[in-house]
Simulated assay, not measured.
Amino acid sequence: MVDSSQSLTALSRLLAEQATGLAQEVGNPLASPAYLDVVRRARHVDDLAEQVLKLCVQQSRDAGHTWQELGDLLGVTRQAAFQRFGKPIDPRTGEPMDKTVRMPDAAERAITIATAVLDGRMDEARQSFNAQVLEAFTDEVRANGLATVTGLVGAFEGFGEGEPFVRRIGDHTVVDIPLRYEAGDMKARVAFDADEKVAGIFILAPETP
C-alpha cells in the first residue's frame, strides 16, 4: 500500500514534469503553440496541483495543524478550508461523508432560480422549491429580505465576477453565486436537497462560509 508521503512525492514529480513541459511549449519563440493542446495541458497541471494541495493539507492535519492555520494560509475561513479539504464522518453511519456533487446542472439551475427570485418571478421560482421552502418563503419574506440587503449595500446591479461555487454538504448540494450591488458585493446561496429541490435560498456576505 502506498502511503500519502509516497503519493505526494510521486504526484509532485509528475506535476513538475508537466509544468515544465507546459512552460517550454508556451515559451518557444520559434513556433506558435497548439492552443487547444496548451489548454489541455494546463488543465492537467491544474488537476495535479489540486491533488498535491489536498495531500499537503492532509499531511498538515495529520501533523496536528488546525483548520484555522490552514485557512489563514489559504486565505479562507477555517470552515471554508474544512468544507474543501475535510473528511467529515457521518454521525448516522460512522462512515466518511460522500462529498461528490451529483447535480451536474446545479450551478445553472441555481442561477436560474436566484434570477427569478431577484426579478420577482416567484411563480417560476416556486416550481423548484421543496415543501418546506414553498410554505416558508412567502412574498413578504422575500420583500423583507431584499429590503434588508438593499439597506446594507444598495441596489442590485447584476451578477459578480467569478464562477458559481458548487459543493456537497451533508445531503445537500450547495451553490454560491457572486452578486454585485451598488455599494458592495454579496452572494446568493441556493441549497438543493436529495430530490434536487430547493431546500434554502439566501443572500449572504461574500465572506460567509
Rank of each mutant, 00 (worst) to 15 (best):
residue 27 G to F: 03
residue 27 G to D: 00
residue 28 N to I: 02
residue 32 S to G: 05
residue 35 Y to L: 13
residue 38 V to Y: 06
residue 40 R to G: 09
residue 42 A to L: 05
residue 43 R to N: 13
residue 43 R to F: 11
residue 44 H to C: 01
residue 46 D to N: 11
residue 46 D to R: 15
residue 48 L to W: 01
residue 50 E to C: 02
residue 53 L to V: 04
residue 53 L to R: 15
residue 55 L to S: 12
residue 57 V to D: 11
residue 59 Q to L: 15
residue 60 S to V: 00
residue 60 S to C: 08
residue 62 D to K: 14
residue 62 D to C: 00
residue 65 H to L: 15
residue 74 L to Y: 01
residue 76 V to K: 09
residue 78 R to I: 03
residue 79 Q to I: 14
residue 82 F to M: 12
residue 84 R to G: 05
residue 84 R to N: 07
residue 86 G to W: 08
residue 88 P to N: 08
residue 89 I to R: 09
residue 90 D to P: 09
residue 93 T to A: 04
residue 94 G to R: 01
residue 96 P to Q: 11
residue 97 M to F: 03
residue 99 K to Y: 04
residue 104 P to M: 05
residue 104 P to F: 04
residue 105 D to Q: 07
residue 108 E to R: 14
residue 109 R to E: 02
residue 111 I to V: 09
residue 115 T to Y: 02
residue 118 L to T: 05
residue 119 D to K: 12
residue 121 R to G: 08
residue 122 M to W: 08
residue 125 A to V: 01
residue 125 A to Q: 03
residue 127 Q to F: 03
residue 127 Q to I: 08
residue 133 V to Y: 03
residue 134 L to N: 13
residue 136 A to P: 00
residue 136 A to I: 02
residue 137 F to H: 14
residue 142 R to E: 06
residue 144 N to F: 04
residue 146 L to Q: 11
residue 146 L to T: 07
residue 148 T to S: 09
residue 150 T to L: 11
residue 153 V to W: 01
residue 153 V to G: 04
residue 154 G to S: 06
residue 156 F to G: 00
residue 161 E to M: 01
residue 166 V to P: 01
residue 168 R to A: 07
residue 169 I to E: 14
residue 169 I to P: 00
residue 173 T to D: 05
